[in-house]
Amino acid sequence: MKKISVFILLTLKQSVRDRFFLAVIFLAGFYILLSVFLALLSVGHHAYVLRRISLAGVELLSLLLLCVSITTSFSRERDTRIREVYLTSFSPALYLGGKLLGYILLAFFFLGFCLLACLPVLLFNQAFAFSFLTSFYYLWLKLSLVCGLALFFSVVCSSLFTALISILALYLAAEILPQALVIVTRFGSGFQKDLLELLSLILPRTDLLQSASGSGPEQAVIGFIYCALYLFILWLGSLLVIQKKEY
């Protein structure tokens, strides 16, 4: 536990003090205030739109924060050769595991900040609903998967840009897959259906990580277990790649 805490602490401290993190925090605060004005434009659905717009903005900013932070961190560690120092003192499993947990905690803190910033805005505008809190929980699970994907692609790809594009492409594919599957099941050919079903086995199931109306705590537990298993597979994949790769 002590050994893994090295990478959790290094990751958290390095990320939180980064100018990019501070810029995203500022942007998030600004966006949440702006969302009040955007919601005013939707007459009759003010509360619902305010919640949805806030959540969408937070998701987008978190995604940006995590993808950029993780890929640049791996790229910087490779260029400054600090990774070689780490890997001559700790095993690759600890290094990758610690960094992954560090970024999952970073996502947690960032969402915590956003939630604290959103709550007074929602309460003041009488738009608060309990589902808003559960949405943050599912968003955290989804962002944890993004951390896992970012870890994997940062290890696999030598170029920062390729890693970034790969993560975003996979995230988008995972987001639209459930709807695409519904459409193809009804109107598509057998081959298209098989292909999408195969993809649904590989890509993260974001439909399991969404708060549906009426879903209880069992949905939250299933989401957590699914997320933990998927992260374990991504960590294992990254470990295999880092052990094969030569630095």
Binding site: V6, L10, K13, R17, R81, E84, S89
Partner: peptide
Amino acid sequence: GFLPENFFPPRNLKGREFLKIMAVG
């Protein structure tokens, strides 16, 4: 113990802080 060429530790940490974290591990 290893010191690579062109080594640069995490820039947003303080020297003592970096060493203390490593020492714990």
